[in-house]
Design a protein around this nucleic acid. Structure first.
Lengths: 190, 190
DNA sequence: TCCTCCTATGCAACTCGTTGCATAGCAAGC
DNA sequence: GCTTGCTATGCAACGAGTTGCATAGGAGGA
């Protein structure tokens, strides 16, 4: 289980409310770990009970009050211990691959639209990642501090993770191109 | 939910027992969908109750009897209906990426061994995939039927899915190389 | 003979994740 | 005045997945 740890990392990068966390999980953190707001609230409550995070009520004007969470010492220790614990390479769950193999027992060409849809989703995500990279890491403003600026571990590590996302999306787009080429070959034959 | 559908695909490719399915899920099917034997037995029972699969007791000598499952008409229909249902691009759960971003708040160099371990696991899996590809798809025996052989949808689709696995492992190895290069830069500084 | 390993099937308890629903304040537009 | 939409929090029920344990026959080695 790692949702707790993903939340700890996100709160260390910047304290925030459950709602804000839920939106981050639709964006940056969500690129490699997804979670719904219901799940986040439930886990936050448990983390609060365990003393991993501290809460502070923040009154707001023009919108409902919020509870701002920040990582407590116990939470930092829990994260550190998890970081030093080896984990198994993650298990894969790839619906689309099941569908592709299953298409052999149905009409393969019926999958073409579905695969195209997925390819477009990966293209969109790739464009989104590349825009984020240009904005935060390789753009003119991102380098304002100059090449002599000290290494910032947090930024460097965020960037290398983002590059992983970019490589993943590119790989998927290429692969789905190959899948479409294969599916197309079955079309005329039927 | 797709475990049921992954089982249907596997049983269509070849009927078998729960035990055999569990071993397939450690091999070919398991490359893109994992499941434990407990889960497989439970789901098989439900699929049997729903009439998706038929069972046949097969006495064996020198080992315990087994129950051989094969897909029934209802199961084939269920698979077909699922294939025509659009699914959302799958949500990602990538522990290692969480760890890498979390390392900014701990000792980044402590992650080096962990990342190396994962890289090795991906190298192993890549070697395994490539061996399987040579054996089943690009080796001399695989082409025994000659280039004029009719297109076999099942084989072609299995191959394109395997190529996806190969591309994924190559991408991961390259990315982890990049992660290690980044982590190494923090070493001497501390 | 005992121990371990492999085939083969399964239950029970628990945690994790999803889906559906509920509440409540405020803003903006029709 | 009404509806829609955004912020903000949460419960309840269910389904999916993991972990631990149990059973049982036979093979092979110490």
């Amino acid at each position: 289980m790692a949702l707790e740890h993903a939340i700890l990392v996100s709160l260390l990068e910047k304290p925030g409310s459950g709602y804000e966390l839920a939106r981050r999980f639709e964006r940056s953190i969500g690129y490699f770990w997804t979670a719904s707001h219901q799940q986040i609230y439930r886990v936050l409550k448990r983390m609060e009970n365990d003393g991993w995070v501290d809460v502070r009520d923040v009154p707001q004007q023009g919108r409902p009050d919020k509870k701002e969470y920040r990582v407590a010492d116990l939470g930092r220790a829990a994260l550190s211990s998890w970081l030093h614990d080896p984990i198994e390479p993650e298990s894969v769950r790839h619906d689309l691959a099941v569908k592709i193999r299953g298409a052999a027992f149905d009409d393969p060409t019926a999958l073409i639209r579905e695969v195209e849809r997925h390819r477009q989703a990966h293209r969109d995500r790739l464009a989104h990642y590349l825009a984020g990279e240009a904005r935060d890491f390789t753009g003119p403003e991102a380098n304002a501090a100059g090449p002599q600026a000290p290494l910032d571990a947090e930024r460097e590590l965020q960037h290398v993770v983002l590059r992983g996302g970019i490589a993943y999306e590119r790989m998927m787009i290429d692969w789905l191109d190959g899948v479409l080429a294969t599916l197309a070959r079955f079309g005329p034959a039927r």
